[in-house]
Design a binder for these strands. Structure first.
Lengths: 326, 326
DNA sequence: TGGCAACACATACATATGAATAATTACACT
DNA sequence: AGTGTAATTATTCATATGTATGTGTTGCCA
């Protein structure tokens, strides 16, 4: 019905970006040269940026917050903290943390040594995938470590594992299950299925894991879309839950609040996560300060990737706690 | 006398760029947030770009010219051709070729297998260094394969070898000699010096070489600054020279025009280059069409890195020659 | 053939960036 | 304290980019 839309080919978009960024031509120049309208050029550039065809790499990205990183590392007793400065006026921590995580991953992968990488899922990890520049690690396997939900395909279990594998030139293995089993299903029996059994076997020898965490609110995709009907945020909060890591809810000291919930979770048990040589937690936002601390207390974090806003809150919180303890 | 200039720290420049590119803030927003003038922000971004603190990476950069690449590959009988589209209105092939070479190197290095890389020198290779994103290849050694000149330090022997080594996280070894020996100096005796002898020994087992070429004109830095007094462009042209590779002058069939000159050259002999498993030639510009062809005829090129303007000229030239041969 | 829907192009406008210029500040010297 | 010099900030202007709107084109259907 009516006119068919012209679909800009990848080659077209790529050439536009080449001229604009490499040859430093204005959009009007590019349009003239390629015989199209400036509007087309402008939109091609925006498309390329949003799809990750064009990526910006910044040298020494953690340099601006060296001191804050060091302070927070000491305060939380971690091995490393990397911080990306956030835009405070229009706060969106996914951008800063996603980019910081991408930079960290590029660095860690360049150092070599990883053959298996367990990945959680969420908006932050999705943002990191978009920021990662294409690499080739054929010896690396990306494995999802938490079941998925029906909605939100790109930021979910399959989308994240395949996304990382794609941009890293690695293989991947997806956990093909929902986050939580229905009441009455035997977890061990469910996990004894061939494909799942093999997957969980591999999780026993991961080189590194990428974790995220959420508080117990509608802000959390998992809480909003992943919980079974009988499990409400209210009951979790009543049980002492302040947030979750891999669908397992923790209190402020990092202890699990419900063995019953944990036993219904199709994901890597947190006690198993503890044994992974390199545990990377990517999380930010004032609403996540408590759960970040709880995860650190539990020992789930070797390297924390966050933004400066959150880092300052974490530090404030730690000094308030130190005062209260005296 | 007067005011002392404030030197913007690397951390400052980096944070400015982070906010601008990662958080997608306007320059005015960044200035407000960081408590500086917008002019400072604008200048910091420009500084970062020119110093290589900020780099743009484009996905599948050779996609726009797939067909032209294939056509030229067949026409020249090469293993591979990679082409970066140039800005024809304001022609500067260093940008396009430098970026294309950087992309190729990133790809080839990601594939692994290189432990030694011989590098010539010049503006194009300098441009590639600036475009390369930071990598870590501790097992790679970069070796210069041509002596240097007194002027032009960053684009010269030392600057190029160290520049590549630095951005690639590799070690390097410089050929500490002028391009041409003075008349009367015995080449074998000169090269038998310990440091040089060791260096040339390594050149016998290079995994790959980065070559450039020039025509015989004042456009060539080597011709303008590197030739001994008694050797003039005119005499070289009379001897049939159309250009040089590694300071060794070739005629249009790729044969050396002067054994006397070649014997005075402190660089990798071209017959030795022939044995290198991967020979990459990065060159562009209408004035280089003849010498590019001659180098290909000589067998010095496995992979050609050039721009679309030059590629079309090379193809035209080949079809004109095919017609003439009939 | 005319009418309609959808899309692309052409044009206009708002905002951001790049560059230039004027005013202010910091510093050294007398 | 006054003066001169140099740099930075504040302001202005030119150009480029992002966005919105009006017009023309294409394709389909009755």
């Amino acid at each position: 019905m009516g006119r068919e839309p012209i679909e800009d080919s990848d080659a077209f978009v790529t050439e536009v970006c080449w001229h604009y960024y490499v040859n430093e031509m204005t959009q009007a120049d590019v349009a003239r040269h390629m015989g199209v309208t400036r509007l087309r050029v402008n939109q091609a550039i925006q498309t390329a940026k949003s799809l990750g065809f064009v990526k910006i790499q910044i040298e020494s990205p953690f340099l601006p917050r060296v001191e804050l990183q060091e302070n927070l590392k000491e305060a939380l007793g971690l091995q490393r903290v990397v911080i990306g400065p956030a835009n405070e006026a229009d706060y969106d921590y996914h951008k800063a943390v996603g980019a910081a995580l991408a930079a960290l991953l590029a660095e860690r992968l360049a150092a070599g040594g990883w053959t298996s990488l367990g990945v959680s899922w969420g908006l932050t990890l999705d943002a990191a995938i978009r920021k990662l520049t294409r690499q080739s690690h054929p010896g690396l396997e990306v494995l999802s470590i938490l079941g998925g939900t029906a909605e939100g395909s790109t930021l979910n279990s399959f989308g994240i594992a395949s996304g990382f594998a794609n941009v890293l030139g690695a293989s991947f293995s997806v956990l093909t299950a929902p986050i939580y089993l229905s009441e009455g299903i035997d977890r061990d029996l469910f996990l004894s299925q061939y494909a799942l059994k093999e997957h969980f076997e591999k999780l026993k020898s991961l080189d590194a894991v990428l974790l995220t965490c959420s508080n117990v609110s509608e802000k959390s995709f998992l809480v909003e879309h992943g919980l079974p009907h009988e499990l409400t945020p209210e009951t979790l909060i009543e049980a002492g839950a302040i947030g979750d890591v891999l669908g397992q809810f923790l209190d402020r000291d990092g202890a699990s609040v419900s063995e019953a919930v944990d036993n219904r979770t199709v994901g890597m048990p947190l006690d198993q996560v503890l044994a992974v040589p390199e545990k990377i937690m990517a999380a930010a936002g004032p609403h996540k300060v408590e759960i970040i601390k709880a995860a650190c207390k539990r020992g789930l974090v070797d390297t924390l990737v966050t933004d400066d806003v959150t880092a300052r809150l974490l530090l404030e919180d730690k000094s308030v706690q130190s005062s209260a303890a005296e």
